[in-house]
Structure formats: structure tokens, C-alpha cells
Design a protein around this nucleic acid. Structure first.
Lengths: 351, 351
DNA sequence: TTGAAAGCGGTACCAG
DNA sequence: CTGGTACCGCTTTCAA
């Protein structure tokens, strides 16, 4: 393959100068270049299949149309990849390219990832995390327009705009779904303390009970981690050897994996879901929630939306030259969405 | 923040010319630049925190030290992200940066992703897929050193080196593990026809039986998709209402999700795992296989290894200027690794 | 041993 | 309306 055509090649072929080529191809031909020349230039460009060299452009313009995405573990973990998917959709549709670097949870790599990206003159930066969490924002992110997706600036006085799911409403609406089915004794298997998502979801849970004028039994809410086995253990504690009257009629889980564990426990104990027990997940994990037996009713995280929203905001800032939170708010909350499947049903009558 | 220091800034500060700076900082100072000047230059560079502008370097050298990774859905799906993790490790350790673009399974985006990357002068390209599959290699990949990870050049006469897991051995060793525990009636829930991984794993399964001089019952191997529900259904077909003597004593699954479905079915039927039934997964999916109840014995895919191996090969080619398969072989197979946990045990005695 | 100059591929300004 | 030229930041050749 011979080297790609350059502006000079086009100019020669069209019998004009490089400057003319540049003008015409950038839409500033009218009033500067003769119609005829314009046509010849365009034709020559087409024939040579010319497109400007992005590297030369970057050097010249000091802008690259590249957005750097750094993630804690979105690429390498199974979770939340759709945030990047949503972000990338928007970027591509606006003529930007995203490059992603994953630090695999090694926070000492944050700064260097950002520096590398900055060195390469990215026009903007986005930090994405798996699961809502506070973030020690790498210094470098303050040097270009930047935005946070699924994480929150951990500084005493936050500087970066963040886009996060509305976990409180999510927790509340999930609970309301169960309340609406007649459940009154609902247990909540929360994740681990370490993530801010868990307490937020619990907060929504309590809010729903409050609004309904119902009390929450203190021993019905407890931390249980985030995995199948801890969900299983939590459920066994709640259900094993407990008389039907004493059992919660529904269990809400802080994520779908916990819910899988709960379903497993129910099966072990011969309990039918949702006849004897309703189970709610959270996250709507791809090919877990919808393929579980029974398929899980769950609260879907608005991952693509979050990514798209964050990227839109970021690109607006990049293109306008204003800071990202020009609108004044430092926070965008994206609503979660209730997905009703088969693991929840009416409260069993205590015949 | 004031603009970054350039070579000219360093030169001024050290009282020399830009060329001297360039020579010294690239290790070609000795014999060209006076010792004293060298020191002053190095000092000035340090003081100004100078590092060369990668964009200018790229333009000048026509090489970028960037490797493009394009994936079908590794970023956005929950699977196989560690291939990229392993690849990135190697790239970083050798001073390269990886940029990844995910086409989200839209093969019409393949070519444009490759062109975009090529436009930006990546020094090499790697294509990564979720699950072993044949790949219609985008034309552009033939223009720079390129390698395939987890996928195989689908052309009549393949041109690109690929790094894939040794699925046949994986299937065989998994089966041998079960055979070693005394199982003779083993069912195999294979994935879907669409993926070449399934038949390969089955091939290994049959090979193990052959080597042991044992027959495989034709009706014990069947396609069951890749998800929890299809695993559940497959297991129910095998187990529900079947007398213990007629039941397989072990079920091998083509992935861990199928195994989750099988465990679920066993629980429904009151079967204890592994006392009444042994279950094998495949993949060692992160936070599924090891957190399942019981934890799944499974065949781990060598994801990081594959990524690392592929990247090593690619960078060797990039740096040497030779084509990737200079060693002559177009294929590297990386062995899978048996992970024994709790879902498999000795064959039940038919009291 | 050093510095000047060309060139990588563009864009933009400014005479002509 | 057009072409020449400077410059983005760096490396490399070549003369001094």
C-alpha cells in the first residue's frame, strides 16, 4: 500500500496550492476560491480518497477530537460496561473518538493514566467507575473539561460535575412495587458498607415505608455483601427453620447476584418463588436477571443513559470552551427503571 | 497552568540548541555533545519537567507507540475483559499505550474502527472477541502488524496469527476430572451451535471417554444455549422424574451460567450437590463460579494469558518490523486450567 | 561540538 | 481570488 494522499497531492492534482485545498475542504471556499477550482479540488480529493491526517491536525490545532475515558475496572470487570457504551455512542455521533484506559482498581495508576491521556492532548476526560463511589480526582482532570460518571468528587469542595443513578428513588420505587403487591414484612439485604450505593438504596426503602405510614423492623435490614454466597447465607438466616408467620414475605436485594443466592436458598428450602416468597434484585444485570429462573424483577441501572448524559455534557463543554458545569449544578441524577418479571408476586395469604 | 515546556524551552535554559537537547535526551549525546552541556541539558529538562510532545513525535516519526484494540463487545459485555487486562499489562510494561474501541457487535463498525485507528497511526492492531469465534478480518488490519485474540481469521487462507484457548484439552481435562471421581454416566450441556467453542469442548469430552475406553451415550450430549434458564431446562429434562439409576451422576456444562441453572434445578428437585450429582462449569467466571453455592468446579479460561501472549507477539513484530507470525505458526493455543471447588465429588454409590 | 535548516501534514495569515 | 510562508514540536542531516 502506498502512503496516504496528502493535501499537497490533492493540490498538485487540482493544479492549485495547498492553502486552497485547505480552505475548500473546510467549507471556507466560497468567497476565497473560484468555483471552478473548488470543483477541481473536491474532485481530486475524492479521487485520491483524501482525508486530512489527524495527527498533523492535532499538532496544528492543539485539539484532537479524542476524549479520554479512564475507568477503575469497567473494562476488566463484568460490570457497568454499558456506561462506556452509552458514552461512546454520543461521542461517535459527534465526531469524537474515545480511548479508554482501565486502571484495574490500582489507584496509583489513575494519575499516570490521566497524564498519558493529557500528554496525547485529549480534548476532555471522563472517569467511570463500577458501582457508585467517591473518587479522589486525579489532579490532571482539572486541566481540561472533565466529567465523572458513576462516581463523585471526593474533595471537600467538589469541582467536577458527576452523573449518577438516583439510588434513593430506585430503592423507594422497588419497595413501592412490593408494598403495592401487599407485602408488609420485607427484608432488605444490603451490599457492603464500603459502597455508598447500599445506604442510599436502604434510604429509599425506608422512605417508602415512611410514606406508607408503615414501620420497618430494625432486624430486617442488614449488610450482606454483594455476591451469590452472601445472598444465600443472608436468606438462610431469614428463612431456614422459621415458621411461615415469622418469615418475611419478600426479600429485596441490593443487587441481582444477592438475589440469585436468595432464589437458591428458597429452592433449597422448598419455597416457591414468588408464591411463597417474592424476591427483588437490583441492577438488571445483563443475562443474569432476565435469564434467572424465575426471571428476576429488578431495578435497572440506567447505565447507557448515564454514559450518554455525561458525554453530552462533556462535549458541550469541550465545544463551547466553558467548564462542564456551566449550568451551575454539579450533579445530574438519572432515574432507575423498574423491570417487573417473575420473581415478585402478591403477598401469600396466611391461610 | 502555563503550557508544557518544549524542547526549545529546555534549550534556552541550558544555553544550547534544540538539536543538542534532542540528542542528549535520546541517549545519543556522547560523542556529539560536550559533557558539560549534557549535564546542563538534563538539569534544565528536569527543572522544567520536560517530556517530549507525543503528537509531534508521532508526526515526525510516523510511529505513535499506540496499539489499537478493537473488540466485538468485550468492553460492554460482562465477559472476557481480562483479555484486554492482560494485553494492556504487557503493552504498558513495554512503553506502549492501548486504546480500545468496542463495536458492540455491529460488524459494520469493524472497518471504520480499524480505519479510525489506522488514521491515528497506531503501530499495531489487535482484535479481541467475547468467546471463541471466526472473524471476518477488516482489510485495514493487514496494513499494520496485527494479531487476533480469541478469534480466528475466517478467510479461506488465514493471514493473521491468533491466540486462542485450548478448548479441546479443556473439555478433555474437565471430563477426566469427573472420570477420575468414578463417574461413568456424564451428561454434557453444550452451548449453542453458533460458537465453535461448544463443539471443541464436546470433542475433548468424547476424547476423554475414548481414551478411557468408555462409550458416550448419544443422548447425553446436547445443545442447551449459554444461559441460566437453558441450563435449568436442560437439567430438568435430564433429572426430573427420572429414577436415580437412570440419572447421569454428573453434568458438565459448557459455561458457568449453564451450571448455575443446573444447580438451581438440582435444588428444586431436592438433589444435593455434589452428593447426589456432580456439576462442572466452564470459564471460571469472576464472582460467579467462586461465589456460587456450592462453589463451582470449573475449567478456567486463560484470559489474561491470552491477552498477554497476543500482545507480546504483536509488540515483538511492531518493534522488529517483521510480520507477526515470523515464527511461522499462525496459531498459539493457551491451556485452560482446572479449578476444583465444591460442586464435584465422588460418584454416588447406587446403594 | 554545535547550530541551522528541512520536513512530518496541516491551517491561516498576508501579500500580490 | 491566489499562492507563499510561518508555525505546531520534534528529529536528523549537514555545514560550520
Amino acid at each position: 500500500m502506498q502512503r496516504k494522499a496528502t493535501a499537497l497531492d490533492v493540490a498538485k492534482r487540482a493544479g492549485v496550492s495547498r492553502s486552497a485545498v485547505s480552505l475548500v475542504l473546510n467549507g471556507r471556499g466560497d468567497g476565497n476560491v473560484a468555483k471552478e477550482s473548488q470543483d477541481r479540488i473536491r474532485q481530486a480529493a475524492a479521487e485520491l480518497n483524501y482525508s486530512p491526517n489527524p495527527i498533523a491536525l492535532s499538532l496544528r490545532n492543539q485539539r484532537t477530537r479524542v476524549i479520554g475515558i479512564v475507568s477503575d475496572e469497567v473494562v476488566t470487570s463484568p460490570f457497568d460496561g454499558n456506561i462506556i457504551g452509552g458514552a461512546d455512542d454520543v461521542a461517535r455521533s459527534r465526531g469524537f473518538v474515545t480511548v479508554v484506559m482501565d486502571t484495574e482498581l490500582d489507584s496509583s495508576r489513575d494519575a499516570s493514566a490521566v497524564e498519558t491521556l493529557l500528554d496525547r492532548q485529549v480534548d476532555g476526560l471522563m472517569y467511570v467507575t463500577v458501582g457508585l463511589k467517591p473518587l479522589d480526582v486525579p489532579q490532571g482532570m482539572l486541566r481540561v473539561p472533565s466529567v465523572l460518571a458513576n462516581c463523585i468528587d471526593n474533595a471537600p469542595v467538589p469541582r467536577l460535575h458527576h452523573v449518577i443513578p438516583d439510588e434513593v428513588s430506585g430503592g423507594r420505587e422497588a419497595t413501592e412495587h412490593l408494598l403495592g403487591l401487599g407485602h408488609r414484612d420485607i427484608a432488605f439485604l444490603a451490599g457492603a458498607q464500603s459502597s455508598p450505593a447500599a445506604p442510599l438504596r436502604v434510604q429509599g426503602f425506608r422512605a417508602a415505608f415512611d410514606s406508607a405510614g408503615l414501620p420497618v423492623r430494625a432486624d430486617r435490614v442488614f449488610l450482606a455483601g454483594w455476591d451469590i454466597d452472601t445472598g444465600f447465607n443472608g436468606a438462610m438466616k431469614l428463612l431456614d427453620g422459621v415458621s411461615p408467620a415469622e418469615r418475611p414475605t419478600a426479600i429485596m436485594c441490593a443487587n441481582d447476584r444477592l438475589a440469585v443466592g436468595v432464589v437458591l436458598a428458597a429452592a433449597r428450602l422448598g419455597l416457591s418463588v414468588p408464591r411463597d416468597l417474592s424476591i427483588m434484585g437490583y441492577d438488571d444485570e445483563f443475562r443474569i436477571a432476565n435469564t434467572m429462573v424465575p426471571a428476576l424483577t429488578t431495578m435497572a441501572l440506567p447505565l447507557r443513559d448515564m454514559g450518554a448524559t455525561a458525554m453530552t455534557r462533556l462535549l458541550d463543554a469541550v465545544e463551547s470552551g466553558d467548564p462542564v458545569d456551566s449550568a451551575g449544578t454539579l450533579e445530574t441524577m438519572v432515574p432507575c427503571r423498574l423491570v417487573i418479571r417473575e420473581s415478585t408476586g402478591p403477598v401469600p395469604s396466611l391461610a
